[in-house]
Simulated assay, not measured.
Amino acid sequence: MDLIEALKHFSTEFPVLVKIGKYVLWMGSIFILITVLRRFLKKRLPNVGMRYRSQKGIEVLGYILMLIVTVFFFSGSIKDFGLAIGLLTAGITITLQELILSIAGSFFIVLSKVYKPGDRIELNGIKGDVIDVDSIYTTMMEIGEWVNSDNYSGRIVKISNAFVFKGPVYNYSQNFPFVWDEVRIPIRYSSDVELAKSIIIEIATKHLSEYARQAQEEWKSVVHKYYIEDAQINPTLAVTLTDNWIELDLRYIVDYKKRRATKSILNEEIKHRFHNLEGKVEFASATFEIVNIPVVNVKTEKPI
């Protein structure tokens, strides 16, 4: 009885401390509940995608529960709930603008399906593969910088989710996981152009026909979903006349993750086939050819 009386006396004398204690206890209970749920689902769900989405869903649920408990504790009664929400929102908006935008961005990313883990994107000038999207940051494995083409640099980059509202988001893999690329081959004017064109088309068909077939199916769904015209999926070859050479531009479609490797294969085989033509097709380069040397007459006088 003495303990109960002491607790009643303490709650009467120090109501603020009691209220804070209850609030901390509620927060701790919610945190423990969320942790237990995350561990339980992590062990029970076999699918990696479902496991990832469940972890993120529980994390968002925890934030919502904490916000509701906070408002109810410090508003006093349910009729003051609207006023408390207004004051709380105004204060948070002023002091935590970037954090609010990041959290709002995370909801926008998930609900609008801007991108998801596994997609290759370019955001805020940084290109990479998305490896995680949490409530505040998007984590990417960076591509490019000091390495060429689409190779990983080795750096893991965290970007605020707020950037989805501040600029364009380039997604290389969503809806249509293919990109168009080009190989430019300069040949001399004395070369057999028709023979060169037939060889390039033959090589392109050999290595790119499977990509074209897959892309054709994917492109149909893109045309059905968006207001966009049909596009040329099969490899095409254009001829450009320059001051120094004839340029053959091979344009083709390829898996966004195999762009560099495919270009290397095409260049290697084209080079090998041209070299076996015994001079019928020759590569051109930015070199200078002197065709005529002017005659220079030098007159010397005999010394006196």
Results as ranks from 00 to 15, higher is better:
129 D>P: 02
162 A>G: 13
149 S>T: 15
136 I>A: 04
186 P>T: 04
148 N>M: 10
82 G>A: 15
127 K>Q: 10
80 D>M: 13
79 K>H: 06
166 K>C: 10
156 I>E: 08
170 Y>E: 11
124 N>C: 03
105 G>N: 06
136 I>N: 01
131 I>G: 09
138 T>K: 05
137 Y>I: 11
172 Y>C: 01
139 T>M: 02
93 T>D: 03
127 K>I: 09
171 N>M: 07
148 N>Q: 13
197 K>D: 00
128 G>Q: 00
133 V>N: 08
90 A>N: 05
89 T>H: 09
145 E>S: 09
76 G>D: 13
126 I>N: 03
85 I>F: 11
124 N>K: 04
117 P>C: 11
152 Y>R: 13
183 V>G: 04
199 I>M: 05
159 I>V: 13
124 N>F: 13
173 S>E: 10
135 S>I: 05
202 E>K: 15
125 G>Y: 02
193 V>C: 05
98 E>P: 03
158 K>S: 13
103 I>K: 08
166 K>N: 14
81 F>P: 00
162 A>C: 07
161 N>F: 09
175 N>Q: 14
92 I>C: 03
156 I>W: 01
184 R>D: 08
96 L>K: 12
104 A>Y: 09
117 P>S: 09
195 L>K: 15
81 F>G: 06
164 V>A: 09
130 V>Q: 04
128 G>C: 05
166 K>G: 11
117 P>Y: 05
184 R>C: 01
81 F>W: 12
198 S>Y: 04
198 S>D: 14
133 V>T: 02
104 A>H: 06
78 I>C: 03
144 G>K: 02
77 S>V: 01
153 S>H: 03
201 I>R: 12
106 S>P: 08
83 L>M: 12
135 S>K: 02
202 E>S: 14
161 N>M: 07
157 V>E: 12
100 I>L: 15
147 V>F: 00
190 S>M: 11
147 V>I: 15
126 I>M: 02
192 D>L: 03
105 G>A: 02
167 G>F: 12
139 T>W: 11
197 K>Y: 07
177 P>H: 08
203 I>M: 08
196 A>T: 10
110 V>G: 06
199 I>W: 05
163 F>Y: 13
115 Y>W: 07
188 R>V: 12
165 F>R: 02
163 F>E: 12
191 S>T: 10
76 G>V: 10
185 I>F: 11
